[in-house]
Design a binder for these strands. Structure first.
Lengths: 238, 238
DNA sequence: ACGGTAAGGTCAACCGTGTTGGCATAAGGC
DNA sequence: GCCTTATGCCAACACGGTTGACCTTACCGT
């Protein structure tokens, strides 16, 4: 039978660890983020986390149901940081763009964590706050609920999907990352025009473009689409 | 020192395994896909793969440098299947849409494999073939190289990113997947309008929409954008 | 036809992983 | 200040990828 997990705020006694640290959900999540940053994508292990905290690995199970649960908490923390770095201006297009870039940036700031968490819907508080904010921007701009729901869905999924993809590239070890990026300057650039005319013709352009994220461009497409729907709604509404 | 890896076509002897099966890269990849399908996302292990093949796990290292290398090969196989299920019509918009949906579908047909592979650029033959095809459609439609390269980049990253995200949802165990989907009908729907007015107002719409992929919508936005660029290019060109 | 070489399959072992059940200790309500 | 029990610790388990030494037999050259 697994140990019972006690939510942080319901914790009654605070007993320091043998090495003196007093544990908490926040401390564990922060330490996990640090480990991911320092030791790379596979660097987050129960044992290593315990060592970094000065606690036995099994102690973590008093705070999280398992590594999977901890992972979700990390994802929610990233969402919180994204929202914290964002401020509303009242101009829907600027606000939506800034929020998208903030989420993207917050995840990319911890690529290894992003890879682990970006494709999971957590349903935790910070994620809900972000969802509410997005819907608020869209409905506040005057979109009908139908459009708002559809565009919200595309917006959040696109942001998380690109965050995970881009983070995946960043999370590679320095060695294999430069190898991947160099692939465009080598493998692809060397393909003969006879067999791959289109790649050959655009290879220099691609080599310059591929190492960067395509997210800002995709985001702009979504904003264009939103603007068009907004014009349509205003025309129909009066 | 690791065992030397011999590429399939350079293999000189074909020695049957103790249990009689004759190995090959293709057989291993196919079996790996079957295991992922049958046993779920974490179901692909060297030991289990060896067992399914009737071979010792360590034998795999004669064919792939490690599980990571095998993973890349699986990703390339999915690309091949996507391209194989696609046929050109000459109408750029239809072709691009069909190719995007084919890639997305090929990955979603093997969600667990997609999660492992979609965020890696492999540089393997089938992936290069897909890239060449996309660029061909865009340049064939009459786009300037600059636009073609940019839209190609957005297109392939968007397709893979959504494939990984959507596959992530599908790859969950039946239990936690219905839990995740039900979250929209429960957690989100129960948020009070006082604290979360926008979620409360659109909850029924979201509950119906969120379980489906946002990819088709995002793809259509990209096609709209491409059409606009194409009009601009034609206006400028003559 | 056959012998020697080395390719390719096998075995046993290593170390690191998440996770658990039982135990010890001390925090904090009374 | 006692007693309860929350909370941290320990030892162990099953399983993961990976490796080095090994054996066997398919194939090449004669």
């Amino acid at each position: 039978m697994p140990k019972p997990v006690v939510r942080d705020e319901a914790r009654r006694r605070r007993r320091p660890t043998r090495q003196g640290t007093v544990l908490s959900e926040a401390l564990i999540v922060d330490t996990a983020l640090r480990l991911l940053r320092e030791h790379g994508g596979g660097g987050l292990t129960a044992r290593r986390l315990g060592l970094a905290l000065g606690a036995d690995p099994s102690t973590l199970y008093r705070y999280f149901a398992g590594m999977d649960d901890l992972t979700r908490a990390i994802g929610d923390e990233l969402m919180g940081r994204a929202l914290g770095s964002w401020a509303a201006t009242g101009r829907w297009r600027d606000d939506l763009r800034a929020l998208g870039l903030a989420v993207h940036a917050a995840y990319l700031a911890h690529p290894q964590a992003a890879v682990l968490t970006a494709s999971r819907v957590t349903g935790r508080p910070r994620e809900i706050a972000v969802d509410e904010t997005i819907l608020g921007i869209l409905r506040g701009a005057g979109l009908p609920d139908e459009d708002a729901a559809r565009i919200y869905h595309t917006f959040i999924d696109q942001s998380l999907a690109f965050a995970a993809l881009d983070a995946g590239a960043l999370a590679l070890t320095e060695e294999s990352r430069t190898a991947d990026e160099g692939m465009w300057a080598t493998t692809y650039a060397r393909l003969p025009a006879s067999s791959h005319p289109h790649i050959a013709a655009t290879a220099p352009l691609l080599a310059r473009r591929m190492p960067h994220s395509a997210y800002p461009g995709a985001l702009e497409m979504l904003l264009d689409h939103t603007a068009a729907r907004l014009r349509a709604a205003r025309a129909a509404g009066g």
